[in-house]
Design a protein around this nucleic acid. Structure first.
Length: 841
DNA sequence: AGCACGCCGACT
DNA sequence: GTCGGCGTGCTC
């Protein structure tokens, strides 16, 4: 626009010879690099660059800023390479990274680490090779240790070995000392190799050389070959090629290429083919293809029912005024069709759409249903995909080659250029909150921010919304649309409570079954219908206990009891993975009578098999779905009615549509309700309502039986009477009263240390500091968490509650982070780790 | 997060 | 006396 001032600017700033670079590591700062002249134009903000980092490492980083300020205290190293002409990370993404780092109290490097598919994160790998002057036959100048000899022997057989593989070869925890020693002895050399992980998928194709792509030329060629007499095979190859080109009667099709593998499979002689290529008659080349190719016809959008149409219009109206809308639609009300219509409109307006789904939902029907409508425009982003596949989706989103993405929580990081709509399906699902590696972000909340950056809209949907979302809708901050009618007039199931206390007293329990549930189950089996049994606990029993002294076997590394797994004949720790064979006797008193306490899916399976020996039963939990396809297989078997009773944890509650399920049994609702955290009621209500929704679809009304010792429990009463409005009001009151979300913002600070007294001391010091500066009503005392030791490190916790209004949350968070930082610098607490969990789940 | 350096116990 | 474990500090 203002040319003169721009050129002046260019002159003064000239080449901006330095760059601030973000590396995908948990480090607070950017690093300053020199931009060599040849990269002046190329190294734009957002580009991936290769930089030397640390002693002898190469890292991928992102250019955050260009400037001309030469750092004075150190000499900046130079950027080695710029990996792309167009930035991988756009401006919206950079803003999003920074927002996440601030909000969730983590570093931008951690966000980058989570955001980039590892195929776009090149780093160097150190490799070891023999020194060219090293002679194995000669007596070595310096004596070699056994381990050194082992490595050298390996290198006689192999050209080189990656540094990281050495510890697999030699029983050493850290092979770096050994490698250094061998380098000094001039027996080996180190070299770095970059791992560029992404490789596009290619296919070999064969076509006629342009010279022969005319009928006359081709006829001449055939005549020539046939006259030779020894070229029959070549003629056959050519005829096959023409056949596969499936020519109409013109020359144009002659240029068409066919897959080389197809030619060979259909019987073309490989050697004849080779000869034809050699003689320049055929052209053999590689073509890059997409890994995902949708084959088959796309269908038009499914029509909406009157109610769906109304809901859709209501959503559009709400979103014209507000940025976010909550859609509360009961299970089976047909939310997916509404999504499709909204997505279609978004695409039509030239924008991209993102549909977030919980991890588990991606393997099921929703993808194929969307694919039938959106075909090639749809991308799927899933953690079970290979890296190459994820990079491909990333690049297609960037190039606007995909207009719709259905994906798990990490798809909020994709490089959308012009997002118009984000839909968060099953928004109450806790799997949207990442925990294990930081950033501990909630994909629903990040999605709202992402949409805001694009000036796009967010639709947040669930049959059982989170209290947070419901509250925002109720307060009018978000729009709200209710869809109460089930699709195709399916009826809601009858939900009944079965009193376990009474049944126990009367000695009517058959193992873990009340007479009510057992009767229904018998009926279902006889009628050849299907049933789902839900118990939110995997394994056989939560723990073992000595019948005499009541001792409970516990984990060696963690402060938890070990769960008994009958199938594998082990006891296991669900926190660190520690396992040992089932103890034959009590380690405390020597008694050999150990009894199982509590109820897991394995035990239910055993009981059901005993009770219904002729019935096909399948168990679905973490233990039976470990391998890649087993989840899908179990689902398929059940939906094709090869299995009649499905027993499982959480997993069975998640969006599966089965028409023939007429009974859902909840074995122990008390286990859900007893959970000791502020979300126990919410989670119980959601889980029980969701699992009930699996019963009875289309033509047949279903029955749900919930076993409990407390039939009067208010939550259960609200579940069975479908009093969801009452539930939300009840629970909001509780939350307001006890100061929990959504009325306050919660932050959990966890301190971790090998030494128990150190962590206790550090925690109380931090708590004291925060309490006196932020207020005692906002910061709890330091306390031991429920599980006070995991993987041999002791834990302490501080809970922070910031009110939503009238308090500067951002400042409060910054103060917490600063306080934590200075505590870590305290020499008394070396080795201390502090973890922050903002909006914990 | 890696990776190097430096300090300390348990083996030849 | 060294080897190998582990704690500590740094990366432009």
């Amino acid at each position: 626009m203002m040319e003169s001032s721009e050129s002046l600017f260019d002159l003064e700033q000239d080449e901006l010879p330095f760059a601030e670079v973000l590396v995908p590591l948990p480090l607070e700062q950017y690093f300053t690099y020199r931009v060599p002249r040849q990269f002046t134009d190329l190294a734009q903000v957002g580009c991936r660059v290769l930089v030397p980092f640390g002693r002898q490492k190469v890292q991928t980083g992102i250019v955050i800023q260009r400037h001309s300020k030469n750092p004075s205290v150190y000499e900046a190293k130079a950027i080695m390479d710029v990996l792309e002409e167009r930035p991988s990370i756009n401006a919206h993404q950079l803003s999003l990274f920074s927002w996440i780092a601030n909000y969730y109290l983590c570093t931008e490097g951690e966000v980058l680490q989570a955001a980039l598919p590892s195929g776009l994160k090149i780093h160097s790998e150190i490799n070891v090779q023999l020194h060219p002057y090293y002679d194995a036959d000669k007596e070595p100048e310096y004596p070699l240790t056994a381990h050194e000899q082992l490595l050298l022997d390996h290198l006689q057989q192999h050209d080189f070995i990656p540094f990281s593989e050495i510890s697999k070869l030699i029983p050493l925890k850290d092979p770096s000392a050994l490698v250094r020693s061998l380098v000094k002895k001039e027996a080996i050399l180190l070299f770095e190799k970059l791992k560029d992980k992404f490789s596009p998928k290619t296919v070999r194709k064969i076509s006629l050389h342009p010279d022969y792509q005319q009928k006359e030329k081709l006829q001449a060629l055939f005549a020539q070959l046939e006259s030779k007499g020894n070229s029959q095979k070549q003629v056959e190859v050519l005829l096959l090629l023409l056949q596969l080109q499936s020519l109409d009667n013109d020359d144009i099709g002659l240029a068409k290429a066919v897959h080389k593998s197809e030619l060979i499979n259909k019987g073309a002689s490989a050697s004849a083919l080779k000869t034809l290529v050699k003689n320049g008659i055929l052209h053999d080349f590689q073509e890059t293809i997409a890994r995902f190719q949708f084959r088959g016809e796309t269908k038009s959008l499914p029509p909406l029912s009157k109610e769906q149409e109304q809901a859709k219009e209501a959503i559009i109206t709400a979103l014209s005024e507000k940025e976010v809308c909550l859609l509360q639609g009961v299970t089976g009300s047909g939310k997916t069709e509404i999504y499709m219509h909204l997505i279609e409109e978004t695409i039509y307006n030239g924008h991209q759409a993102l549909l977030l789904v919980p991890e588990i939902a991606l393997t099921t029907q929703i993808v194929s249903r969307l694919q039938q409508v959106f075909g090639d425009k749809l991308g799927v982003y899933h953690s079970r995909f290979s890296d190459n596949e994820r990079v491909e989706v990333w690049q297609k989103v960037q190039n606007d080659a995909l207009q719709v993405v259905v994906g798990v929580r990490s798809s909020v990081f994709l490089p959308f250029e012009n997002l118009g709509l984000v839909i968060v399906d099953e928004e109450h699902e806790s799997s949207y909150k990442q925990f294990d590696p930081s950033p501990r972000y909630h994909a629903r909340d990040v999605a709202v921010v992402l949409a805001h950056l694009h000036q796009a809209k967010t639709l947040v949907a669930s049959a059982t919304p989170s209290l947070e979302s419901f509250y925002l809708a109720q307060e009018g901050k978000w729009g709200y649309v209710l869809l109460e009618k089930r699709f195709a007039d399916a009826q809601m199931p009858d939900i009944l409570l079965a009193d376990m206390k009474k049944a126990k007293k009367r000695r009517e329990m058959v193992q873990d079954f009340t007479p009510e549930l057992l009767t229904q189950l018998r009926y279902v089996v006889e009628q050849k219908e299907q049933a789902i049994l839900f118990q939110n606990r995997r394994g056989y029993a939560p723990f073992l206990q000595c019948d005499i002294c009541a001792h409970v076997p516990r984990c060696k590394n963690c402060d938890v009891s070990l769960t008994y797994h009958q199938f594998s004949e082990e006891v296991r720790c669900h926190y660190c993975g520690y396992k040992e064979p089932v103890p034959a006797s009590c380690e405390a008193c020597g008694n050999s009578q150990l009894i199982t306490v509590g109820l897991g899916t394995e035990k239910i399976e055993e009981e059901v098999v005993q009770l219904f020996p002729a019935t096909k039963v399948q168990r679905m939990d973490l233990d039976t779905t470990r391998s890649k396809h087993s989840y899908q297989e179990i689902i398929d078997d059940f939906s094709q009615q090869k299995t009649q009773i499905l027993i499982g944890t959480q997993m069975v509650t998640k969006g599966l549509d089965f028409d023939q399920v007429t009974l859902v049994g909840v074995l122990d609702a008390d286990g859900l309700l007893r959970f000791p955290d502020f979300r126990a009621s919410e989670r119980s209500f959601q889980t029980l309502t969701q699992v009930s929704g699996r019963a009875g679809r289309k033509e047949k009304k279903g029955v749900v039986i919930i076993q409990t010792r407390d039939v009067q429990h208010p939550i259960l009463q609200m579940v069975i009477h479908y009093q969801w409005r009452e539930f939300y009001q009840y629970e909001l009151n509780e939350r307001r009263l006890f100061r929990f979300p959504p009325f306050v913002r919660l932050i959990t600070i966890t301190l971790r240390h090998r030494d128990k007294s150190s962590v206790k001391q550090a925690a109380s010091q931090l708590a004291r500091h925060l309490r006196s500066n932020l207020g005692e009503n906002r910061v709890s005392e330091a306390h031991e968490p429920l599980i006070s030791r995991i993987k041999n490190r002791f834990l302490m916790e501080i809970t922070v509650k910031f009110e939503r209004t009238g308090f500067n949350v951002q400042q409060g968070k910054a103060f917490i982070k600063q306080s934590g930082k200075s505590l870590m610098e305290n020499k008394n607490f070396t080795g201390l780790e502090i973890l922050y969990d903002v909006d914990p789940y």
